[in-house]
């Protein structure tokens, strides 16, 4: 309803409100990034300063006083591992659900995404301790795959649904097995869906806090779990705290912006066609 009939001032009023909303959305993030580049004596200055001599001091401090790099490596191992596992389980499942219209496997995995994580964290802790996997990448990747797999399935479902049935039927006439149709015919047709699913799975696995808080140890701690320690130690070290926050937010934000156009439909798990 881009009504051209409405007077000019209505248009300006609308733009003004949108600008204010945009500033409210952006300002906290800008403040975080600005603070990370402030000299340490100026981060906690009151009144807060908006103009200052930017410095990498906080990033250097973070690098020197914490094993930031190894936390980052842990985060990438767990996130990429769980994304790949989610794709390996999720792609065939989404294809089978789309083809057979038997939806309960998809609904079952969704239930896992809806339940509070603390519900299975306690048994996981006991089970992983039993087999000596507490603090292992294996435990972290398995637990994070519980987040990634339903994302992959539900993002890919509409993509598979959009492939005309006649394509599959023709392939079947030629004697292709269902599995072969998936890998040779269907998967190449849903490439963009796989890209969106992978990125969303990556973002949510990267951002996930609760499981690594309990299942990691000092060697396998992810950035998000380490952030909790930074807050505890950093009550006066706002500069390096904000440097850490900026670096941790960077990978998911960069990836999300890359696929922003297709993101919203994926995020609603197919509930709304965006």
């Amino acid at each position: 309803m881009n009504d051209h009939s409405s007077p000019r001032w209505v248009h300006w009023l609308n733009t003004l409100q949108l600008t204010v909303a945009g500033i409210l959305i952006l300002a906290p993030t800008v403040w975080m990034v600005l603070s990370s580049f402030k000299p340490s004596f100026e981060v906690t200055a009151y009144p807060p300063t908006l103009f200052f001599q930017p410095t990498f001091e906080n990033y250097v401090t973070l690098w020197q006083t914490t094993p930031f790099l190894s936390y980052a490596v842990n985060s990438f191992v767990v996130t990429i591992g769980s994304t790949l596992l989610g794709l390996a389980f999720g792609i065939p499942a989404a294809f089978a659900v789309s083809w057979s219209r038997i939806t309960w496997p998809a609904v079952l995995t969704l239930a896992a995404r809806m339940a509070p994580g603390t519900l299975f964290l306690l048994p996981w802790y006991i089970m992983f301790r039993e087999v000596g996997l507490i603090g292992s990448y294996t435990a972290l990747i398995l637990s994070h795959a519980v987040i990634t797999m339903p994302i992959v399935i539900w993002v890919l479902l509409p993509f598979f649904d959009n492939i005309p049935r006649s394509v599959f039927e023709a392939a079947q006439m030629d004697g292709c097995s269902v599995t072969r149709i998936l890998w040779r015919i269907a998967l190449p047709l849903v490439g963009s869906g796989v890209a969106v699913a992978s990125i969303l799975a990556f973002v949510f696995s990267w951002n996930f806090f609760l499981f690594s808080l309990i299942l990691s140890n000092s060697d396998t701690k992810t950035l998000i779990a380490a952030a909790f320690n930074f807050v505890g130690e950093g009550s006066t070290q706002w500069g390096s705290l904000m440097a850490a926050a900026t670096l941790i937010a960077l990978p998911p934000l960069a990836l999300a912006i890359l696929v922003q156009r297709w993101l919203v439909a994926g995020l609603t798990l197919g509930a709304v066609k965006g």
Binding site: W206, N207, A227, L253
Partner: peptide, 16 residues
């Protein structure tokens, strides 16, 4: 701009 808040880790939002 609109997706930036909810694609950022909630933990980072809390720190900020």
């Amino acid at each position: 701009l609109l997706i930036s808040p909810f694609m950022m880790p909630p933990v980072v939002a809390g720190m900020m």
